[in-house]
Amino acid sequence: MISYAPFWKTLKRKKITTYILREKYHISPSILTRMKNNEYLNMRTVEDFCKILNCRLEDIAEYIPDE
């Protein structure tokens, strides 16, 4: 499973709100909802987040193996 928990930590660390993502960077609320639910995002979206947040891929998502 892919978890976007690192994304939320990165947002907090960078002091960027979801409001800023929506208004300044035109990130769709549905993308943020999918991230909250750990649902699929295409790599282009993940890359966009890396650029916006000036961070690495592992600051956005992590793989959690099934047990």
Score class of each variant (00 low, 15 high):
Leu53Asp: 02
Pro65Arg: 05
Glu47Asn: 13
Lys9Phe: 02
Asp48Lys: 14
Phe49Ile: 01
Ile64Asn: 09
Ile2Lys: 08
Met35Leu: 08
Asn54Ile: 01
Thr18Val: 11
Tyr40Glu: 07
Leu11Arg: 01
Ser3Glu: 11
Leu21Gln: 04
Glu47Thr: 10
Glu23Lys: 14
Glu23Thr: 13
Thr45Phe: 05
Tyr63Ser: 04
His26Met: 10
Tyr40Gly: 06
Asp66Asn: 12
Met1Glu: 04
Val46Asp: 00
Arg22Asp: 00
Phe49Lys: 00
Lys15Trp: 00
Ile60Leu: 05
Pro29Glu: 10
Thr45Asp: 06
Lys24Ser: 13
Trp8Gln: 05
Thr33His: 09
Leu53Asn: 02
Trp8Glu: 07
Met35Arg: 05
Ile27His: 04
Ile16Phe: 08
Ile60Tyr: 03
Glu47Gln: 13
Ser3Met: 08
Lys9Gly: 06
Thr18Arg: 09
Ile27Pro: 09
Tyr4Val: 02
Glu58Phe: 11
Tyr63Thr: 04
Tyr19Leu: 06
Asn38Met: 07
Leu32Ile: 15
Tyr63Glu: 06
Thr18Asn: 12
Asn42Tyr: 12
Arg56Glu: 15
Val46His: 01
Lys24Leu: 12
Ile2Asp: 00
Arg13Met: 07
Arg22His: 06
Asp66Tyr: 13
Asp48Arg: 14
Glu47Val: 01
Phe49Pro: 00
Ile20Phe: 04
Lys15Asn: 14
Thr10His: 01
Arg13Phe: 02
Ile52Cys: 10
Ile2Met: 09
Glu47Arg: 12
Glu39Asp: 13
Pro6Val: 03
Ile20Pro: 00
Thr17Gln: 02
Tyr19Glu: 11
Glu58Tyr: 12
Arg34Ala: 15
Met35Pro: 04
Arg56Tyr: 06
Cys55Pro: 05
Pro29Trp: 03
Thr33Asn: 13
Met43Gln: 13
Arg34Leu: 14
Ala61Lys: 12
Arg56Ser: 11
Thr33Val: 11
Asp48Pro: 00
Ile64Arg: 15
Val46Tyr: 05
Tyr40Ala: 08
Thr33Ser: 15
Thr18Trp: 00
Leu41Gly: 03
Val46Leu: 12
Tyr25Phe: 15
Ile52Tyr: 08
Cys55Gln: 08
Ser30Ile: 13
Trp8Ser: 09
Asn54Phe: 02
Tyr63Asn: 07
Val46Cys: 03
Ile20Tyr: 02
Phe7Tyr: 10
Tyr25Ala: 09
Leu57Ile: 10
Glu23Ile: 04
Tyr63Pro: 01
Lys51Leu: 13
Ser28Cys: 14
